[in-house]
């Protein structure tokens, strides 16, 4: 399945204020892996899944987009996402990463590393899904 998220949301801009599940406020660039894990533990609806990057390709439809293929969760479900090259994903133990970190840093001022095959990203699922 291919999902097309909205272009580039404002909350990825450096300095954006993010509220964790326990109410604590943090800047987007200061978020740590534990912030997501602890927030998901508190949440009654959401749980964190590990999504491993399996392939990264240039989009056939637009030069500004990439298609990232993930292997999601324990069932290793294959999911492809078409995103802007600068769209950041949060990699476990590493932080924000994108297909084109230079563009991410330039456009959002968000410190970012290069998203690579094998990286394990944080993604969400609904807790009641079986």
């Amino acid at each position: 399945s291919t999902v097309l998220p909205p272009s580039l949301p404002p909350y990825f801009i450096r300095g954006s204020i993010i509220q964790l599940a326990d109410g604590e406020l943090k800047r987007v660039e200061d978020l740590k892996t534990e912030d997501f894990i602890q927030s998901a533990e508190i949440s009654s609806e959401l749980k964190i899944d590990s999504s491993t990057v399996e392939r990264i390709e240039r989009s056939h439809t637009s030069p500004n987009f990439a298609v990232v293929q993930f292997s999601v969760g324990e069932h290793r479900t294959q999911v492809s996402v078409e995103v802007l090259l600068e769209y950041p994903f949060f990699v476990f133990g590493q932080g924000w990463s994108s297909c084109c970190p230079d563009r991410t840093t330039q456009l959002l001022e968000l410190p970012c590393t290069k998203l690579s095959v094998g990286d394990v990203c944080i993604s969400l699922t609904l807790k009641n899904l079986k």
Partner: peptide, 19 residues
């Protein structure tokens, strides 16, 4: 100043059904 919930930063990559 807008405040965004933590989960808006995380993509929903879950399949609708996993069985």
């Amino acid at each position: 100043v807008p405040v965004f919930p933590w989960h808006s930063l995380v993509p929903f990559l879950a399949p609708t059904q996993s069985d």
